[in-house]
Amino acid sequence: MGDYADLPGVRTWYETDGKGDPLVLLHGGFCTNDTWGAQRAELAAAYRLFLPERRAHGHTPDVAGPLTYRDMADDTVAFLETVVGGPAHLVGWSDGGVVALLVALARPDLVRKAVVIGATFRPGPECFAAPRMLDAMAPDSPDMRFFRELYEPVTPDGPDHWPVVAAKVIDMWRTQPTLTARDLARVAAPTLVLVGDDDLMTLEHTVALYRAVPDARLAVVPGASHLVPLEQPALVNRLVLEHLAQDTVETMMPVRRATAGGAGVGTG
């Protein structure tokens, strides 16, 4: 079951599940909470889950004007303050990962740990493995059918609003986000960067994200695409739960994580 929260930016639909420390799940672009189906039960066994659907997604209405990641991050901050009631772990998939990064930058006091799955920090034309996919996207195209069928039955704006939302999201992907490595260096939350080895963005872009976020952890899941939480749910769930539970990383030969002034263990 779900409910609405009257946030300053938009009346936001959300669901809750489980008990324990708060964990907010942030879905991907064009998606709804249904796409967390392979994660929900296992994560809810360890955490109190909060699942908001962002503006123009699922049960949450669209808002006049363009869609921006920063507006959705502001909505998420308001959600954390008014519904969650304080700091939480954030797990964001795709667009949800972008939102998680922006929230961690804007309000580090509200983010305990973060997991970003298939996320970007630059616009699609700069980081997508196949940037031309943006040109092929149209509201009525076969590739968009899956998302349209998620949207139409539940949107309060009515199914006829789909072309408007589709155009807004695609435009957002073309022009946003616009973070830099210097911006990402200010992320204070311990962060796991997770990606499929055949994801929408280039692996080089994901590695740049991992390298820019201080003390981040990187997981590249073999034989997986941008839908890695659906394709490899058991592995993704384990990686998420281990990251949230583990406070320090101890390895036998640290290089990137070697302490300042210290040295890693050599082999020669």
Rank of each mutant, 00 (worst) to 15 (best):
T191S: 07
H205A: 14
A212S: 15
L203Y: 05
Y210P: 02
D197G: 08
A185T: 01
E204W: 03
E204I: 04
A212W: 07
T191I: 00
H205S: 08
D197Q: 06
A219C: 07
A216G: 09
V220H: 09
V220D: 07
A189N: 06
L200C: 10
P190K: 04
L194E: 10
G196R: 01
T202D: 08
R186W: 00
L192C: 08
V193E: 08
L203R: 13
V213N: 07
D199I: 12
A212Y: 08
D199W: 15
V195R: 04
A188N: 06
D197S: 10
A189V: 07
P214V: 04
A189G: 10
A189F: 10
A216N: 04
V195C: 09
A216V: 02
T206Q: 12
L203V: 11
L184I: 07
T206P: 00
G196F: 01
V220I: 15
R211F: 01
R211M: 09
A208K: 03
T191Q: 08
A188H: 11
P222H: 15
L184P: 05
D215R: 15
A208R: 15
L209E: 08
L194A: 12
L203T: 14
D198G: 10
A212L: 12
T206C: 13
V193Q: 03
G196D: 06
D198N: 14
V195K: 01
P190G: 07
A189P: 13
L184M: 06
R186A: 14
L200V: 15
M201A: 11
H205F: 06
G196Q: 04
D198T: 13
V207T: 07
L184H: 02
R217G: 05
L192F: 06
D198Q: 15
G196Y: 04
A189T: 07
V195F: 02
G223P: 00
V213Q: 10
V220W: 03
D215N: 14
R217Y: 01
V221H: 09
V220G: 08
A188R: 15
Y210S: 10
R211A: 09
V220E: 09
T191F: 00
D199S: 14
A212K: 10
A185N: 03
D199Q: 11
A188V: 09
L184C: 06
T202I: 05
G196I: 02
D197L: 10
P222E: 14
V207W: 05
V207D: 02
T202H: 12
A219S: 13
M201S: 12
A212N: 07
L194F: 05
L209F: 01
R217M: 05
